[in-house]
Amino acid sequence: MAEEYISTLQKKLEDGHFVVCSEMGPPVGADPDFIKNKAHKLKGYVDAVNITDNQTAIVRMSSIAGAKIATEEGLEMIIQVTCRDRNRIGLQSDILGASSLGLRNALLLTGDHQVFGKDKGSKNVFDMGSVQLIQVASDMINKGVLLNGSEMEVPPKMFIGAAANPFADPFEMQMIKFSKKIEAGARFFQTQAIYNIDKFKYWMEEVRKLGLHKKAYILAGILPTRSVKALKMMKKFVAGMDIPDETIERMEAAEDRKAEGVKMAVETIEEVKKIEGVSGVHLMPVAWEEITPVVVKNAGLYPRPEVD
């Protein structure tokens, strides 16, 4: 494939920058200004922004549409694509459409089951899973063919990413899945939010043993939070999250929870920066998107590098 970079995000990673990604959720509605306002707040503080795809199976403006609007405001965007709502035909079609609109980064996921949303009676698709979607997308980009073998005159261009979970069990099985995603063609990963730094370090050690950190870029997931309740909820209900009791106790003891949340996020960033194989961070402040610039600044990651 071409030696030129597919996306600015990719170039920054390959140039060795410690990148900062963040996340935005599209509106439950059709207002483009919603996206534009969020984009303005993040511009300059991050290298790329994920835009979610019907996250937790809640109907929202499509990821691709939102990404296009945000791109026009000057942000580098990462679309998210899940397997829950579309079959292989729809998924390949979306990748072609996204590429044609100039979108160049995609995070390919299996997707939350619809039982989490408000349309529990809907049929789920899951014609493919994340590993298969990555393989299909990779072949579209690198070989110029669709899954059914048809050749495309103008193949799509996309820098492909996937999710990784250092905290899920069984550990060995998750490691197998991680390797499979890389083999299928994922080039960058965003991890589940890190609260248990020791477990994350252990996972990175195993990743390095297999040499996988050289095959894909790993962005450490950071979830800045200001709420004890949120931490407890996540500990109890969110699958695959590892939140040590000390973290909850620390937040409980804090006088200014907002400040403490920022502090904790910054500390985690500083820790992961030191770990070999970590190429950046992915900030996902739930219901607190405005804190991203603060965290970026306090972690000494502002301003972001410019590349052409």
Partner: peptide, 30 residues
């Protein structure tokens, strides 16, 4: 989700994210 390449990220303590009564079949396969 009828996944064929391993569990999704929602597998927790050997149970499915959809319902804690459901075993994560990928853990059984593993």
């Amino acid at each position: 989700k009828s996944l064929l390449n391993g569990p999704c990220g929602g597998s927790q303590d050997g149970k499915c994210e959809v319902d804690p009564e459901i075993d994560c079949v990928w853990e059984l396969i593993y």
